[in-house]
Design a protein around this nucleic acid. Structure first.
Length: 279
DNA sequence: CTATGAACCTGACAGC
DNA sequence: TGCTGTCAGGTTCATA
């Protein structure tokens, strides 16, 4: 589920509510949800208690809440994570429940338990302050300091398919399987094309398509194929706007040819066989 | 260094 | 109905 647009919708939804609030209660219901917090559930609980949330941040598919002790609560939604505001949800996938000083509950629900919370210190990398667990990620395409030429240099150095590279979070972060297929469809580039062999015009087209697709995803409040929900529990609408993803067999919105589904890097990959040239 | 595959989980769905 | 196999938005680790 959650790629950059979904995570950004969650971050924005949380920011308005949690900034300035103090955490008054924490309960970890499932240890896997904090497995990446190496000091353990008790440490996380103790350190969160009575801390104030001072702001929010995001890079790629990671988001975080900055805390008044200078550290950050880093959240990854994995495949099915939800950050919910309101009452504590009566949900058997409730993994972590917290209470804020205005009486609101901030809960982490995650069916598949691939996501989780961890506390981390902020480090300065290349002029930006990010939590430790995020430091290895490339900037995402919506980052004001995103360096397109730098990414192109990396693309050229590697020899793997462009879709594989779009999914590599150390090349460019935030893009997952949905938005990779959507951006490649929009740019009319075959997912199997070697990234290093794209022309300058194709690179420009792809960059524009990635930015537009991600921004569209945010504008439609994310894609709810399965269990993605915003912090208010509402699903997104982007799944109704897909041109290629999950549309195999349906006509390409551009030329009418049925969308094809292949596998690239073990991932289901959707493309128009007529709009794109196979390598 | 690059690339591939498996593992980590739960649930939905297709087919028999 | 129920069983089996496959697939799903992500990341990480081990193996070639």
């Amino acid at each position: 589920m959650p790629e950059l647009p979904e995570v950004e919708v969650v971050r924005r939804g949380l920011a308005a509510h949690v900034t300035g609030r103090t955490i008054t209660a924490v309960r970890v219901h499932h240890p896997r949800a904090v497995r990446r917090h190496e000091a353990g559930p008790a440490d996380l609980t103790a350190r969160l208690l009575d801390t104030q949330i001072t702001g929010t941040g995001r890079r790629g598919k990671y988001m975080w809440l900055t805390l008044d002790d200078g550290s950050a609560l880093v959240v990854h939604l994995g495949m099915s994570g939800q950050m919910l505001l309101g009452e504590v949800p009566n949900e058997n996938h409730l993994r972590i429940a917290t209470l804020l000083d205005d009486g609101t509950a901030l809960s982490f629900v995650d069916q598949r338990t691939f996501g989780g919370w961890m506390l981390a210190e902020l480090v300065t990398v290349d002029g930006s302050d990010v939590p430790m667990p995020v430091a290895h990620l490339a900037r995402d395409p919506l980052d004001p300091k995103f360096d397109r030429d730098g990414v192109v240099t990396v693309l050229r150095r590697k020899h793997s398919e462009i879709k594989r590279q779009l999914l590599d979070q150390t090349v460019v972060s935030g893009i997952g399987n949905i938005y990779a297929d959507e951006a490649l469809w929009q740019a009319r580039i075959h997912p199997l094309r070697p990234g290093g062999e794209l022309t300058a015009a194709e690179v420009r087209r792809l960059h524009a398509a990635v930015v537009e697709t991600l921004e569209r995803g945010i504008a439609y409040q994310g894609a709810s194929i399965r269990n993605y929900r915003g912090p208010d529990g509402a699903p997104g609408a982007m799944q109704e706007r897909f041109n290629a993803y999950d549309r195999d067999g349906e006509p390409c919105p551009r030329c009418g040819t049925p969308i094809e589904k292949i596998r690239v890097a073990q991932r289901g990959t959707h493309l128009c066989p007529r709009c794109t040239r196979q390598p």
